[in-house]
Structure formats: structure tokens, C-alpha cells
Design a binder for these strands. Sequence first.
RNA 1: GGCCCGUUGGUCAAGCGGUUAAGACUCCGGCCUUUCACGCCGGCAACAGGGGUUCGAGUCCCCUACGGGUCACCA
Length: 508
Amino acid sequence: MNKQWFNNQEAKIPRGKVRTRFAPSPTGYMHVGGLRTALYAYLIAKKDNGTFILRIEDTDKARFVEGATEIIIKTLRDAGLNYDEGPDIGGPVAPYTQSERLDIYKQYAALLCEKGAAYYCFCERQGDERQGDGSSVLLHQWSKIDGPSPRDPDPCRDLPYAESKIRADAGVPFVVRMKAPYDGNTTVADMVFGEITTPNKTLDDMILLKRDGYPTYNFANVIDDHLMGITHVMRGSEYLSSAPKYNLLYKAFGWEIPTYITVSPVMRDANNKLSKRHGDPTYDDLLTQGYLPEAVLNYVALLGWSPGGEREMFTLKDMLEVFDVSGISKAPAIFDMVKLTHFNSEYIRAMPAKEFAKIARPYICNVIKNENISIEAVATILQARCEKLTDIPEKIDFFESLPNYDTELYIHKKSKTDKMISRDMLIAAKKAFEKNTEWTNESIHDILIELALNLEVKNATLMWPVRIATAGKAVTPGGAIEICSILGYNETLRRIEIGIEKLSEENR
RNA sequence: GGCCCGUUGGUCAAGCGGUUAAGACUCCGGCCUUUCACGCCGGCAACAGGGGUUCGAGUCCCCUACGGGUCACCA
């Protein structure tokens, strides 16, 4: 065993600062829960001026997905969760990638065997069968009998080290398993779940190194978290029951155990986790559905974490100030699209008008081809009334072409406007418009207000038919004035005439 | 089935032994208004159940129920 080699690995460890990592496996998409985990890890590090790193956990060859790492990197960048370290010091930052570190795991596994804390196992593969989708069918039936079931002793566990080392070196296929003690207890300290004590006899000899030479998640994680100097390990609650085994590994190496921060999953309903397979949206799906990255991040942060007060709108920068692990809840949280939508509309409204116009532009241009219509003006009336960007097309299609609407729309109970009155109003409005030369929001406003005054009717009595005639639908962004203004003089008059015609026909 | 974890309105949640049990979303009223929306005001709606401990329990303990996790050469 090369002592110098191990010393070199250890020498790279930076100490004394908070260091966290986001350690996804490259599945081809980023799910919402993953984003939340990344966010929390980022916040913990950055709150303390620490280091946040990205580590790709691609130790399952069978599940390799082309381009998956790029998606993760893009998402993180998109969300503003920039990681600041990779294996190439000084260069452009590529993430740490476990498949590039295979030698390291092998060396440490061998070291553990030498120390007697692990062993080579030459038994045939056993226990489960793989299905096409990567899930497995357990062959084992759980006993109905009460009490802890005794571990099946592995025949290789007590093989003399020297003997199995020779066999392994000679090329006999093997896995490396950890030697979990039969006696005593292991206590795991977790910042969210508190202290959990587990009897060692319930722990199995988990596999560290697979037959193909790749490490398991359980092993690579411990090695890397140590080697990369991770101080706060954040992960999902599915790993909570393995945590005692991780502690045993740290102990076997004589390494300091990091602080664990375990978070519960994000659910789709009371019984099921959010999952792509069930059709739940991934982070990218949400963006294409018209959600803003900031809104998604803000909403997701609040799933399972609360800052304690009444405020719930937080930018990433705000979160840096208020985030605290003590606010993380042990209970799972259900993802609610309706509330996300609310956050999104808040973010849209809070945006500077110019910025909104910029992001709304493609959605608007997709519908409005007419060059006489000002995209900016449409964006302006849209901003306060759109919950997500994908709402835009159906809200503004009437600008492009007048829908074939029903005259029932002219009936407005509140202002006691009916079809007859509407017709009179439209005729009056037409005349008033024809007399005028200017065509701005202000001039249109003045004309209509003055007209209502002269006719001695409520504003709504006049505005309602004008809006219906010019838009041809009941629900519109903006009122009559804005719509007329955007449509322009000629189109406005054309549509009012159509309205008069429609209403006149019915009276014959 | 064993072990571990959880459970406050439909949802997110505050609450750290004494509160009229916050707040937000949704929904429903009302006001404002140039429709819808926005905004403002108001309303509906919760401590899973049962035992303790205590002068006093959503808060502490136990049991039950329900839910989740785990028991892979997946992560």
C-alpha cells in the first residue's frame, strides 16, 4: 500500500470553511426536489462565504444518460446557483465526476480491507433481479414474524485477509463489502432529524465496490465527501437509514464525520413523491410552461423550509440572509402548482416593465403579426394580468383578428347595459371618434369620458360596448381605451361598425 | 414484516407549556374600477384519535391509526 499516495489525496483537503456539495446522479433532467436540495446546500455554503461544489454521481453504468450532466449544469446556472470548484484547479470549472475517480475508490476500498473493516466477497450475485426500467423485484419475502431478523452471515466475511487478497489480485471477480459490527449501537446526529441510534446488528455488510470496479453510491459518497472537505452533507431522507453505515465507514478510516442535514421529499400528493414518471413537471418543464426561474426557486425554497415570519417572497439574495437550517421541516411537503402560479404572477408584476416586455415579446410576436400593433403597448397591458408567460397567446389573439362573437356579450347587468343601449353607444362613440384627429390613450380617454358625460350615462355603460365591439370577447387585458389605442383608428372604427351592424341585424 | 421518521384548515405553514391557534395560496362575499384582473376590506376552513404528566398541552410522555422511508452489485 502506497502511503504517499494516500497522503497526496488528503493534502488536497481545504479546511476551516463551510463546504457543501450538490451531488446528483445524471438522470437526464432536474426534478424540483433536486433543485431544492441544491438550493439549500448552496445557501448553507454561501451564507458563510463557503464553497459550493457540484459532483456528478455517475457510478451506475447501466443508467448512463447522454447529455445529462449538461442539463444539471445549465439548470444550476439558470437558477443562479453557481458552483465554484472542480478538479481542474484554475481552469474553467468542470464539475467533479465520480466515474473519473475510480482509482481513488479502489485504493480506499483496498485500504479498508487491509485494515479489516471490509472484505473481499467472491459469492455469486444474489438478492434481486433487474427489470427493464431499472427498478428491481425483491426475491426476498419479509418475514411476518416480529422482532429483528438476523443478518445472513456472508461466508466471505471471515476469510483470512491474505488469502482473499491473493484471490482478488489473481483476477477472481469480487465485490468489497463493509464489515458491520454485530454488537453495539451507532448514533447518527442530524441537524434536521436529531439523534438517531441504531443497533449495529441490524446493519448489513453493504457493498462498497461493485463487481465492475465501480463504487456504490454509499461508498463513493463517503470517500468524496471526506476528500473534498465537505462540512455539511445535505441529502434526501431516503439515505437516513444508511447513515449509520456511513458513520461506521468514517470511523474505520478515522475521519471526521460531517454534519448531516437530511431533507424530506417533495411530494405530488400525500402518498407519492414528485416524479417525472408520473408526469410531474421537471424544472425545465416548468420553464417551458411559462414559469420564471426566480419564482420556481422562491416557491421551492418554501417547500419544507420556513423562515418563520410572514414574508414569503425571497430572491436568492434575500434567502442568503434569512436561510437557517432550523427552519427545515421533517415532514414531506406537497408541491402545489396553483401556489407556484401565484408566485409566478407576483414575480411578473414586480418586474420592471422593460424586462417584462423583453421576455413577453416572443410570446406576443407569435400571435401578433400585424405591424401596426405596438408590441410594447401590448406588453404593458399584459403585465398585471398574466400569471405565466404561456397565458399570453390566448389573452391577446383578438388583437390580430376580431373573433366571431355573440351579441349576448353586450349585455352587462351591473351597468344595466343591453343590446339596444350598446348599439346607441357604439353609434355615438363612432361619431365622437370620427370628429377627432388625435389617437392616443389620453385623447381616447378624453373623448369617451366627455361623451359619457354628454349622454348622461355611467362610464361603464359606454365603455362596456366599446370594449366588446373592439375585442369581441368578455375577458380582455386592458380596458376599452387601451384596446382602441393599440388597434389604431382605422381598425377601431372598423370593429365598431361591425358591432353596430351585428346589433342592428338583430333588431330587424 | 422489522427498524426509522412523520401527522396544525384542501395546500404551504407559524407556533418551542398559558395565543381569540398567525400568515400565504385556493374558494366565497364586498369595495374600487373602464370588463376581467390588480389593489383594498371581509369570510369559510385546522392541532389525526385515545390515554397520561401538569394548575394549565398543538407544544412533554405512551399507545393506536394513517402516511412515508429503508431492508439492491440504484442512487
